[in-house]
Every structure is written in C-alpha cells, then in structure tokens.
Design a binder for these strands. Sequence first.
DNA 1: GCCGAAACGGAATCGCATGTCAGTTTCGGA
DNA 2: TCCGAAACTGACATGCGATTCCGTTTCGGC
Lengths: 207, 207
Amino acid sequence: MTSSAEPVSRAERKKLELRREIIDAAFDCFAERGYHATGIADVATRLGIGHGTFYRYFQNKRDIVDHVVDELVARITGALTAENAPDAVSTLAEYREQSARIGESLARIFGEDPRVPRLLLFEAPGIDRAMAERILDLFDLAAALTAAYLSHGVELGYLRADLDVDNTARAINGMILGSAITSLRTPEDQRALSEAVRRVMYDGIAS
Amino acid sequence: MTSSAEPVSRAERKKLELRREIIDAAFDCFAERGYHATGIADVATRLGIGHGTFYRYFQNKRDIVDHVVDELVARITGALTAENAPDAVSTLAEYREQSARIGESLARIFGEDPRVPRLLLFEAPGIDRAMAERILDLFDLAAALTAAYLSHGVELGYLRADLDVDNTARAINGMILGSAITSLRTPEDQRALSEAVRRVMYDGIAS
DNA sequence: GCCGAAACGGAATCGCATGTCAGTTTCGGA
DNA sequence: TCCGAAACTGACATGCGATTCCGTTTCGGC
C-alpha cells in the first residue's frame, strides 16, 4: 500500500536513492541560504555530483522546490490526520489528550528542525504566486481540520455551544503559527509556549 | 517636530516628491509581482521615468526595499504605540476598549490593503537573511508590547495572576498574525474573525 | 573481457537584470 | 535670451546563473 510497483533492479534503486539525496540537499540549501540565493550548482556540489546530473532527475529549479515542499506538506498533513480523526474520542479527558498529542507532533516537526518553518514560512511564499497559494492551501487545510475538531467538541458538549468554529479554528492555528515562528529564534522554551497556547485555548473555549 | 529642516527650494520639493513616488511604485511592484520578479526597469516604467533615474535616488534594488519596509514598519509601530500606552487605562472596560482599538487599527492596516501583509509576510522574509531578521525583530517588538500590556492587566487584577505574559503575548500575536494571513484570501469576514480572537482571548485570560 | 545503453560531468550557451555613463534635456538665475 | 548646473535617459557593459549538450565513464549482460 505504500507504493504501487517496487522497482527491483539494482540500478533503479540507486537512482531513487540519488533522487532522494538531491531532494534532501536541495532542502538543506534552500532553507539555509534561501531559494533565490542557492544555485543548482550549490545543490550539486553539496552532493559531489555534476550539476548537469541534476537535470537528469528534475526538470528545473522550480520543479525541485515543489518536490521538497510536497514532502514537507505530506509530513505535516500526516501528523495532523494520523490516528487523530476528530471523532475518535468521546470523553473530555481524551479530547484534551488528543489536542495535546496533535500539538506535540506539530511542535516536533516545526520545532525540532528549524529548516521546516524557515522553508515553509519564510522562503516558499516568496518564490512564486503558485507557491504562495500552496502555502495558503496548507493553512486552509489546517483550519478545516481544526474546525472539524472544534465542531466535534461542540457536539459533545465540551466546548461552548455558540463557538464560531471556523474563525476560532483560524485563531488557534494562528497561535500555533506564532509558536513555529518563535521557534526560529528561541528553540528552547517550546514547552512553555505550547503550554501557554493550550491554556489560552481551553480556558477560552471550554463551556 | 515632524522633520528637522524643511527643504525650501522648489527643486528640492520635486525631488522629495519623486523619491516618494518611487518608494510607492516599488511597494506596488514588490507586492504584486514579488521582489525577485520585479526589475528596477519595472518600477521605473510604472512611473514613466528612465531606470537610470532610479539610481539617482537609491543605491540599488536592495536599498529601496529597505525603505519600503521602513515605511510599513513605521506605520505599524505607530498604530501599536499611538495613544496606547499599556498604563493609560485603569478600568476593565477601558482595558477591553483599548485592546479592541489596537486590534482595529492593526486590522485596518493589514486588512484594508492586502499589499501590506503580502509584502511583509510573504515577500520580505525570503529576500535576505538580514530582511528576515528585520521581520523577526518586528514580531519581537510586537510581542514585547503585548506582553507589557498583559503585565499591566495582571497588576490591575484584570488578568489571571499566574499568566505567563511573555508566551501568552506570543500566542495572542499569533492569532493576529493568522488573521492577517487569512485576510489575504478572505478580506470579508474580518470582523467575525477578530471577534473570535477577542473571544478566545478574554474568556481565556480574564481572571 | 567486450558491447551497447544509460548515467554522468562540466564546458559552453543563453537570457536577463543590474548597474554605469556619456550625451541630452530641463530649469533657475542673470 | 543665454548660460551653467543639475537631472534625466536609455544604450551598453557586465556578471551571473539556469539550462543544454556532447564527449566520457560506468555498468549490466553476454
């Protein structure tokens, strides 16, 4: 279920492996020096390959940044949805636990590796209109998930009946976004920050 | 008190005027097409001047974006501090009013003109390390102001005594940031969104 | 070991935006 | 009206980085 047809040939595997290494190297470069400041040659040099080789794996510079972002988006949506269906819980305690769990994994993805917020929030939006839209789509997706989560809480009676789920979802996601950005400078007190977020949230939305 | 020495000569005034028009045109271009996608020639053409003239007013491309950002930062810090000293209020009602007022003016700056969030949040961070730092500095400044504001509320007893002012300030600013980003796609329900933010805030932090 | 195909590398190409500069125009004062 | 200074202009020089392309190397099968 992970992938349709596993490549068997030895060469095939090597190829896929290099392809992956290129994506990783590009991620590094883009996050460190910025998209516009890194040349294809930089990415190639980092791997010790000729930069002509790059073009055997990707169409062009724009192409690869899409793949890099694909990966990050997949990682994030994975964390957001994995075993975290909004209707998987049915007690208040479980509900809070789940929210803590989601917060944890998001904080891990964004907080443990500063390259992630730096690329997604700082570099990507300035690349292109299309890329900016992708990032906004990601925000919308997150907002929709959070809203579904809140809706469920309202239905179960854990949250205020008059809660404006859509806008509150955006507000909450904004707090998380703020945490991610803060983590760029202050990777330390991630814990205290997410505690503050949760505190604002729950003392605010609990019925 | 606005400026030290007013230029008198007719020519001087013309010069300053053009200088301003260049900044405005650059702002337009950078926000619409993006910093990297706009050339000096684009800015010049928009004003109907030769692009060589541009260099009589600004050192280079990097120079002007700094001036554009200067202006926006000034506008924002102005809104944040003008007649909004955290200790200017002494009743809960006034306190809420002030928070509403600050929220209003921020929402106006960011919401009324999508170029502002687009440039500050989407374009600027990807220009440069230095520019990214400037944006982070702006966040830090805002966090400090919000924190001071919260501290005052705690002292007066309006807010929870155990409030983690610094981190809560970041969380709150995150909500505002989220609103600004949302406004890029949905300029309509700005009202409902800021109401949701205030609701989360007050029902969360009031003692 | 030999061969053909596929992968690789990096010199060469190409386009483009920045920044310069020398000729031209504008303008204020005499 | 004339003059010199300052402002303006856009053709040009430059540099840089993305992409191409072809000679070279590697590799798997025989």
